[in-house]
Nucleic acid binder design. Structure first.
Length: 259
DNA sequence: ATGCCTCGCACAGCGAGA
């Protein structure tokens, strides 16, 4: 089964790209981030016309996550929102059963600028995610944490076009990376890096400064696999060509294939 | 050091993204 994470940067602005992705790739599930619409504004009719169904957790103007699957196998909602802070108003987490897999769509806070409450929110959110990930591992099932993690794991050019250019970004800070590693070390497999131990595997290219044209990207969209899911890993990759299309998102769809 | 580009909101530029 092909499971995808795709930060759309606006589901309505990106609807033609989403529909053609569903129709061309026929994935078994797509985790969306940054749908940027209220629940009632989610274009579910267009998604259904493409043969898919879904669950979503929207927010007017910002954030927002969803999980789409073929209409004959709809996702079964398990959770909207991350536990640990009832006052958190951001729509950044949704979790559903997709076949025999527990699948989460994650939109981790960006955290810029460093040193502000936004960065503190990022780190606090990551600690909440770590705690929840631990409870998921305790189920001893195939679990996939898929999303825009907003963390560049290393300074290596395989992860980032220029560590120097990005050095002061929240995506690169030691605290962000430590929090990411703390989750990984609980027992998760970074599927893209497992499949491609060497070589650049960027998932994001900024709209500005010709970043796409000069391949100045970085790797922030990750699929973390529980041990049961990792045992079933067949392949993983990035549908990079979709980033080059007209009116594309700044992220490329990133995926795993599980037995 | 800043803007580059794009979104949503709302209908003019601005906050936010990364």
């Amino acid at each position: 089964m092909k499971l995808v994470t795709y930060n759309l940067n606006g589901v309505r602005a990106r609807l033609p790209r989403l529909v053609e992705y569903l129709q061309e790739e026929r994935p078994d599930a797509v985790c969306l981030q940054e749908i940027k619409c209220a629940d009632e504004a989610f274009p579910i009719a267009d998604v259904r016309a493409a043969g898919y169904d879904g669950v979503w957790h929207g927010q007017k103007g910002f954030n927002g996550v969803a999980i789409l699957t073929p209409a004959d196998r709809p996702p079964v909602l398990r959770r909207q929102g991350l536990p640990g802070d009832p006052d958190d108003t951001h729509s950044r987490y949704i979790e559903a059963e997709v076949g025999d897999v527990v699948l989460a769509s994650i939109y981790l806070p960006n955290g810029n600028p460093v040193g502000t409450e936004k960065f503190a929110y990022k780190l606090a959110w990551m600690e909440r995610l770590r705690a929840h990930a631990e409870t998921l591992l305790a189920e001893e099932r195939a679990v996939v944490l898929a999303g825009d993690w907003n963390v560049i794991p290393t300074d290596h050019p395989d992860d980032v076009f220029s560590a120097r250019a990005m050095a002061h970004d929240a995506l690169m800070q030691p605290e962000s990376r430590a929090a990411f590693r703390r989750i990984l070390h609980g027992g998760w497999t970074d599927a893209i890096r497992a499949r491609y131990p060497d070589g650049p595997v960027y998932t994001f290219w900024d709209y500005t400064a010709g970043c796409w044209q000069r391949d100045a990207g970085f790797r922030i969209d990750h699929l973390l696999l529980s041990p049961h899911a990792a045992d079933r890993l067949l392949d993983a990759g990035i549908d990079k060509a979709h980033r080059g299309r007209e009116k594309a998102s700044d992220h490329a769809p990133t995926w795993v294939s599980l037995d």
